[in-house]
């Protein structure tokens, strides 16, 4: 086995192969960042929606809760397959990576909206009352007082979630998205040793995940003790 790997190595680490893997790594990053970015935006919307109290919005609040509870209880692989078969009849031109990104967005929205909700709830009620007594509108109170104070609670777990999702996007290889994992699959199917083909993929994920994970933890340490009462 070792001899085979050594013999294959020079051909394997050709610039064409490395470029191929690198492009795939870019797609992995794209799915993660765009999906989680959209998920954060929509999740923020859902979290705010779920804080409202107007009776008129009750059905919307209920739908938001349904979304959150549903997408946290279905395997990502199943969601990928459902989005693939659900979205493409509506938007036939959409690329596979687009479909995978929608799936990431759906799941990220559910998880991130819970993280954001916890962050918003960490701001004491007294702060909102102080704002209300000073004649702030609900929007001003949220935008000027609540949101700025919840970032330090929201950002560390949100960053950690995103780093975690880098790895989960490997399941998109099942759809045929030529992301990092699929690039390894293609190399192996072309005859490369699985140790090399999947080894380089593992390395790729580690290079993405480890530094970002460290960054997320640094963020946590920096934000945690700041300006506590």
């Amino acid at each position: 086995m070792i001899e085979r790997i050594v013999a294959e190595a020079p051909a394997f680490f050709s610039s064409a192969n490395l470029g191929f893997v690198l492009a795939a790594l870019g797609r992995t990053l794209f799915m993660t960042f765009v999906g989680c970015g959209l998920g954060f935006g929509i999740g923020l919307g859902l979290a705010v929606l779920r804080r409202t109290q107007a009776p008129m919005l009750a059905p919307a609040r209920w739908l938001a809760m349904l979304w959150v509870e549903t997408f946290r209880r279905i395997p990502f692989l199943v969601i990928l397959i459902m989005v693939l078969f659900g979205v493409q009849p509506l938007v036939p031109e959409i690329s596979l990576i687009g479909i995978a990104t929608i799936a990431v967005t759906l799941v990220a929205t559910a998880f991130l909206s819970e993280i954001i909700r916890a962050g918003l709830e960490s701001v004491p009620r007294a702060q909102v009352e102080g704002a209300a007594a000073m004649n702030f509108s609900a929007w001003q109170s949220f935008w000027l007082v609540v949101l700025p104070q919840s970032w330090r609670v929201i950002l560390p777990p949100a960053a950690a979630f995103m780093v975690m999702f880098i790895k989960d996007t490997s399941l998109a290889s099942h759809l045929g998205v030529v992301e990092l994992t699929f690039s390894g699959k293609i190399l192996v199917n072309r005859g490369s040793s699985p140790v090399l083909g999947y080894g380089i993929v593992l390395l790729g994920y580690f290079i993405l995940s480890w530094p970002l994970g460290r960054l997320a933890r640094m963020l946590e340490v920096r934000l945690a003790p700041s300006r506590n009462q």
Binding site: D168, L171, L202, Y205, S209, G213
Partner: peptide
């Protein structure tokens, strides 16, 4: 923890 279970 820094690599996908799938690839493992």
């Amino acid at each position: 923890t820094n690599t996908p279970a799938l690839v493992q």
